[in-house]
Amino acid sequence: MNRRIFVLALGLGVAAFVAPRVALAEDHLAEAISHTKEAIDHGKQGHADVLVTHAEAALKHAEAAEKAKKNEHTKEGITHLKASITEGNKKDAKAATGHAEEALTHLEAAQK
Rank of each mutant, 00 (worst) to 15 (best):
G13E: 08
K94E: 14
H42P: 00
L29I: 08
D41C: 00
A19K: 11
A39E: 02
A110K: 01
H35Y: 13
L29V: 10
L10Y: 09
N71Q: 08
A93G: 01
A103C: 07
T105N: 12
N89W: 05
V7D: 09
V52M: 06
K75A: 15
M1W: 12
A68T: 06
N2A: 14
A103S: 10
V22Q: 06
E72Y: 10
A64T: 05
A23G: 02
V7Y: 14
A103V: 05
I33N: 04
V52E: 02
L51G: 00
G11M: 12
K82L: 07
G43S: 01
T79Q: 07
E101N: 09
G46H: 08
G13R: 10
A30C: 04
A19T: 15
H28P: 04
T86G: 03
V22P: 00
L12K: 09
I40V: 15
L10T: 14
K91Q: 14
E26A: 14
G13C: 10
L24F: 10
V52H: 02
N89P: 06
D49K: 11
A58N: 05
V18E: 08
E76A: 12
A65I: 01
G88K: 01
G11L: 15
K90D: 11
T105K: 15
T79F: 08
T105A: 15
D41R: 12
A93T: 02
E101K: 13
H61Y: 03
S84N: 03
H54I: 03
L12V: 14
T53F: 10
T105W: 09
E108G: 03
K44R: 15
A32H: 02
H54M: 03
E31P: 00
T53Q: 12
A110D: 00
P20A: 04
S84A: 15
H47Q: 11
I78H: 04
T36K: 06
D27Q: 12
L24W: 10
L12W: 07
L81Y: 07
A109Y: 02
K82A: 05
G46W: 04
K69W: 12
D92Y: 07
L81E: 01
L12H: 04
Q45K: 15
K67F: 10
G13H: 11
R3V: 12
E31V: 02
I5M: 10
A62R: 05
L8V: 12
M1C: 10
A93Q: 05
V14K: 11
K37N: 05
E26T: 13
L10H: 02
D92V: 06
A96W: 00
R21D: 07
G77E: 02
H73C: 07
K37Q: 11
E101I: 08
N2I: 11
K67A: 14
F6G: 00
G98Y: 02
K94A: 14
H99A: 06
T74I: 15
